[in-house]
Design a protein around this nucleic acid. Structure first.
Length: 882
RNA sequence: GCGGGUGUGGCGGAAUGGUAGACGCCGGGGACUUAAAAUCCCCUGAUCUUUGAUCGUGCGGGUUCGAGUCCCGCCGCCCGCACCA
């Protein structure tokens, strides 16, 4: 066939590709053919591609589009590469915004959420993502959260769930408990309200049981960004050291309630191995240090303001006042940074375990009750905080570690010396290395029975109770006689009641007239249903398992899970580096621990994509002195500047920042798709910026992409199956491009793949019709298929391709065509470029040298000077040294 | 403060120690057109004495025949953590 007939419905009056008709046709074709339905019984190798599922806020934004386009290219590419691909989508559908909407608009959270899901699903479908919609679910489906409840009961029975009264972070605006991670600078992460401390009975998951394993597992995650692994490592915060007790100069009576002031779920951490001696009194003070090697440099001891010792001294009004002052100290970053080290000198002393010397005991504002034992030994020579403290209060500062032992008694240079060295001024430790001394002190303490080596974790158990309606009900019943009783599996799911009201703040489950009144499953007596719901991070901690298999009677089938997991590529925002990703790793381990699955790490490779950004347009409101922002659609942007459409007067063009409603720099994907089609938007998401960096949105950029779609269409329309003749150089370019694009996609270098496709497109356009050119076009259709699937299908059909190109294999590469037969050789004199010549590939060094010396430009530069050396890099360059 | 990242034309960005600026955007010029749109072609780091040369990858040194790339010392910006003993 020498001419191709173009379906009039995909061509506008000017012969242009018309996405408004083509996009829908192929989206329907894929759905009808079940092209992207994953077959777990397939004999092909399996590949699980997953993007972090969205919260159904109402509309898809550009960040979603970028995220899912990347995953989509990988999914489509791997399918072409012969994999059976699982690429599912669902909805992280529980959470606060639905309740906020209920309060503001009087709609039911369920209805609001379902409506949003329907809307967003249709948006995603219009972008043409290769998703297996047969596996779609929302976490608010009773079926899903029912299985979650069953798993929660399983974990409870395995001893990984417990309940305890603890002081929690209470958000007074959202009226809910927040995890430590959800408190940012002392404020709620969503509401921004100042967080209060409250005492409540809370459910906890024992993530600390897995601390060591979660930390060790990071080492095997080679395809995770180093940054994320470091963040998790710091969050887990393992430290090893010595815990030991100072003997106090006098015994203090323990006061009622003392020791419970310590705020957070931290007290979920197991108690110290060496508790204070003597019940009901405090005679020994346990401290924790990571630097027991510096113990001879200790010149004071300090306890936190809410430490039992401080509390038991609080009958003294001066002490009470000091403790109050400590509590008032802000938690904000800036405040902590500038806060002065303050201490209150008590009348007590602590006996040094080696020297027997009495050390003064302070209450200090920089000691934290929730870390270690809430008490420290102060070694000012080798700890900056202790140094500042000792300087302020005139305490001795001794050097016990010296880089140069000969200068052990030199004065300090105004700051602590944290570096490595040799132990000095330290009795039996003198002359040891820091590491040896640490071991020596721990051994001595353990042998003499006054202390022992201990590992301390920053990670705390995960508080999962939320006093909210729109979440997974915690499946437990409180019975006066039987205590806490799990809801029997046969009675799951515990379904949320529909008839609830949101006209007053607080938990609607708590005040529902009947829901919480049930009979005890054990004894049948009147009992009370738990009204807390689970943190939504629980929902997202196992959804990737449910995607892999969805039996009705169980959360998942372990064999199916084993077929698909781990996820080959997990793609999402870096904002989930700690919370979601750590919890998901924990759940996977916990479920493996109780024998539900065999996989340990859920995500083999993680990719964190950059944000979509946009310029901001604003004017300063003269009256109020604050900037007023304008959306891109309100502004006429030229290369010189920007003016407001309504008054044609200039507006300030501000920084390029993440799209956000408050700055109004948001571009709606729907509007762009309606105007340019799905393929142009997808192409834009992949072009130019490396995927891990931010992508600046611009109208000029999307118009460029739209033009390229048409340019390809014109090139493809010129396809001639019967063309004859060979263009060897185009053949090479084609095969080199196929290989390079494949490598780029596999390395997630989409911007580079895009650039290669531009190059080959240009080369094919310039080349005269030939069999080579037709081959180049066929290769291009395949290469753009994962990126611009609608255009690719349309062309594939027109040029007589069999079936859908989505099902076609990736084009094969002829290795013989990957190498050029001629190469450009750079000619340098003293490392400076003077000329270039072409030479046959693989020419000998002598031949290249001879060719180089024949260059007039090079000879002019050498200017008759004696040639001292000639460096020849075959196929690359010749450098003459004179 | 600690940890990590990053710095290349007007902009987004390419470059296994070997021709810096691929590719795209913007801009300029031209062709086609009655005109516009669309499309196509050419130019587009700076400077100069312009068939050529000099400078040029945040700054200052160094290694090398040759450095954006490696080493040492700084600076800016971005992100994370933050009195963690």
């Amino acid at each position: 066939m020498t001419d191709i007939r173009i379906d009039p419905s995909v061509v506008d009056g000017r012969g242009r590709f018309d996405p408004s008709t083509a996009d829908g046709r192929w989206q329907r074709a894929w759905a009808a053919a079940e092209t992207f339905t994953a077959d777990s019984d397939s004999t092909k190798p399996k590949s699980y591609i997953l993007e972090m599922f969205p919260y159904p806020s109402g509309r898809i934004h550009m960040g979603h589009v970028r995220n899912y386009t990347m995953g989509d290219v990988l999914a489509r590419y791997q399918k072409m590469r012969g994999y059976e691909v699982l690429h599912p989508m669902g909805w992280d559908a529980f959470g606060m915004p639905a309740e906020n909407a209920a309060m503001e608009k009087g709609v039911h959270p369920g209805g609001w959420t379902r409506q949003n899901i329907a809307q967003m699903k249709s948006q995603l479908q219009r972008i043409g993502f290769a998703l297996d919609w047969t596996r779609e679910f929302a976490t608010c489906d009773p079926e899903y959260y029912g299985h979650e409840q069953a798993l929660f009961v399983d974990l409870y029975e395995a001893g990984l769930v417990y309940r305890k009264e603890s002081t929690v972070n209470w958000d007074p605006v959202d009226m809910t408990v927040l995890a430590n991670e959800q408190v940012i600078d002392g404020k709620g992460w969503r509401s921004g309200a100042e967080v209060e401390k409250r005492k409540l009975n809370q459910w906890f998951l024992k993530i600390t049981d897995f601390a060591e394993d979660l930390l060790a597992g990071l080492g095997s995650l080679e395809d995770w960004p180093e940054k994320v692994r470091l963040m998790q490592e710091n969050w887990i915060g393992k430290s090893q050291g010595l815990e030991f007790s100072f003997e106090l100069s006098e015994s203090l009576p323990l006061r009622e309630g003392v020791g419970d002031g310590c705020a957070t779920p931290a007290d979920a951490v197991p108690p110290p191995p060496t508790p204070p001696h003597g019940e009901g009194s405090l005679q020994r003070l346990p401290v924790y240090t990571t630097r027991p090697d510096t113990i001879f440099g200790a010149s004071f001891v300090a306890v936190a303001a809410d430490h039992p010792i401080a509390q038991s001294l609080a009958h003294d009004p001066e002490v009470a006042a000091f403790i109050e002052a400590c509590k008032r100290g802000g938690t904000k970053a800036a405040e902590v940074e500038t806060a002065e080290k303050l201490g209150y000198l008590t009348s007590l002393t602590a006996k040094h375990p080696f020297t027997g010397e009495p050390l003064p005991l302070f209450i200090a504002n920089f000691v934290l009750m929730e870390y270690g034992t809430g008490a420290v030994m102060g070694v000012p020579g080798h700890d900056q905080r202790d140094f500042e403290f000792a300087t302020k209060y005139g305490l001795p500062i001794t050097r016990v570690v010296a880089a140069d032992p000969a200068r052990a008694d030199d004065p300090f240079a105004g700051e602590a010396e944290a570096g490595d060295g040799v132990i000095v001024n330290s009795g039996f430790l003198n002359g040891m290395s820091v590491d040896d001394a640490i071991q020596a002190v721990i051994s001595r303490a353990e042998a003499d029975g006054w202390g022992e080596g201990r590992t301390v974790w920053r990670l705390r158990d995960w508080g999962v109770s939320r006093q909210r309606y729109w979440g997974t009900p915690i499946p437990f019943i409180h019975c006066e006689t039987c205590g806490v009783v799990p809801v029997p599996k046969a009675q799951l799911p515990v379904v949320l009641p529909e008839d609830v009201s949101f006209d007053i703040p607080g938990n609607p489950l708590e005040r529902h007239p009947t829901w919480k009144h049930v009979d005890c499953p054990k004894c049948g007596a009147r009992a009370r249903r738990e009204t807390d719901t689970l943190d939504t991070f629980v929902d997202s901690s196992w959804y990737f398992l449910r995607f892999a298999s969805q039996p009705a009677d169980r959360p998942f089938d372990p064999e199916e899970v084993a077929k698909w997991l781990p996820v080959q590529h997990y793609i999402g925002g870096v904002e989930h580096a700690i919370l979601h990703l750590l919890y998901a790793r924990f759940w996977t381990r916990a479920l493996a621990h109780i024998g539900k699955i065999t996989v340990q790490e859920p995500f083999a490779a993680l990719f964190t994509q950059g944000m979509v950004t946009h310029e901001t347009y604003s004017r300063v409101d003269e009256a109020r002195g604050v900037p007023v922002f304008f959306g891109p659609e309100e502004v006429d942007r030229t290369s010189e500047g920007a003016t407001l459409l309504t008054d044609s007067a200039p507006v300030d063009v501000g920084r390029v920042i993440k799209m956000s409603k408050s700055k109004k720099n948001v571009v709606d994907p729907d509007a762009i798709i309606a105007r340019h089609g799905a393929d142009a938007v997808r192409w834009f998401m992949l072009s130019d910026s490396p995927p891990e960096r931010d992508l600046p949105w611009s109208d000029a950029g999307i118009e460029g992409c739209s033009r390229f779609v048409q340019r390809l269409w014109r090139l493809f329309s010129a396809y001639d199956a019967g063309a004859v003749g060979e263009d060897k150089s185009l053949d090479r370019k084609t095969h080199q491009t196929i290989a390079a694009v494949a490598a780029d996609i596999e390395a997630l270098g989409f911007n580079k793949a895009v650039a290669r496709i531009y190059e080959l497109t240009g080369a094919a356009e310039k080349s005269a019709p030939s069999a080579s050119r037709s081959a180049a076009i066929r290769a291009l259709v395949h290469m753009v298929a994962p990126m611009m699937p609608h255009l690719a299908e349309e062309v594939w059909a027109k040029i007589g391709g069999e079936g859908l190109i989505a099902d076609a294999p990736w084009p094969a590469v002829d290795p013989a065509l990957l190498v050029d037969d001629e190469v450009t050789i750079a000619l340098q004199h003293m490392g400076k470029l003077r000329d270039t010549i072409t030479a046959p590939k693989g020419a000998s060094k002598d031949a290249l040298e001879a060719l180089a010396l024949a260059s007039a430009n090079l000879q002019r530069s050498i200017d008759g000077a004696a040639v001292r050396k000639v460096i020849v890099v075959p196929d690359r360059l010749v450098n003459i040294v004179t």
